[in-house]
Amino acid sequence: MPEEPAENISGGVGSGGVDTEFAPEDADSRAAAVVDALGELYWQTAYGGQDAFTCLVRTILSQNTSDKASQPAHDSLLNRYGGGDLAATLADAEQSELAETIQSAGLYNQKSEMIVGAAEEIVAEFGGAEGFDAFVREEDPGTVRDRLLEIHGVGPKTADCVLLFSGGRGGVFPVDTHVHRIARRMGLAPADADHEEVRQSLERDVPPEKCGFGHTAMIQFGREYCSARKPACLDGPEACPLYDYCDRVGVDEVDETVVDPAKAD
């Protein structure tokens, strides 16, 4: 059984997660059955406990890039600016210097602007990283999510990652590119669903305590088996451990072609 990858910007080392166990059950939905099957394939982790502002920065850095690129940028940022209140330090940071520090993450000018702006906003409203962390952990999740979405550069996936990996909120299933593709390809959400509609479908159908694990495990499944261009099922049913759960929307196993589920006949 593979260990949780260290370079998983959402849930790897430093995520604040702890090992846990849950037994496969008589699932009430196919989405729940898929998550149970992923639980037999991968690690099982309960998330929460990461510093909220650090989590926000990590997730901004991960936008539109791979963990392989964003992790070194995160490490460089902490090496240069860590050691105190990270929000206060970055609120006063020179943007050009920060952009240079995080350039391996790509889109570094835009991301440095987002990070400095978020830091300024958090210092002004919450007094710094500690106050922001308390807000994320203790306030109503809907209130937290709405407030996070008001920050420039924070979209639904970023907000949900902060809720999950910092706040430890059950019932939060962040949707990235992998989750969006797999949920629609498997038939767990409508083929033409956008990210928010996929999130709503999964959070409705997956038990709250399994949503965080489902998010990270589905990402890993997407990397190892259900890639965008060549999913494992093209090599035959035995090549994919979740074959029996999947509708393979947009996948033609005979012609060996793959299209986005929204474009499937």
Rank of each mutant, 00 (worst) to 15 (best):
Q50S: 13
Q63D: 05
Q71K: 12
R58C: 00
G84Y: 00
K68D: 02
A88K: 12
T54Q: 14
P72Y: 01
A69I: 00
Q44D: 06
D51L: 07
I60Q: 05
D51T: 06
R58W: 00
L56A: 10
Q50N: 06
S76C: 03
Y42L: 04
Q63Y: 03
Q44I: 10
R58K: 15
S70V: 04
A52D: 06
Y47E: 04
Q44S: 10
E40A: 01
Q63R: 11
D85A: 10
N79D: 14
V57H: 11
Y47T: 00
T65H: 13
F53V: 12
Y42C: 00
A52G: 08
Q63N: 08
C55F: 08
A69Q: 03
A46Y: 07
A87K: 08
A52V: 05
A73M: 13
A73Q: 07
G49R: 07
T59S: 15
L86I: 13
C55T: 15
G83P: 06
L56R: 09
P72H: 02
G83I: 07
A88T: 13
Y81N: 09
N79H: 12
G48C: 11
W43G: 09
C55Y: 08
N79Y: 09
T45V: 14
D85L: 12
L78G: 03
H74E: 15
T45G: 01
R80E: 00
S70P: 06
A88S: 13
L61P: 02
E40H: 01
T54N: 11
Q50L: 13
C55E: 15
Q44W: 10
R58Y: 00
Y47K: 08
Y47A: 04
W43A: 13
L41N: 01
G49M: 09
R58L: 04
A73E: 08
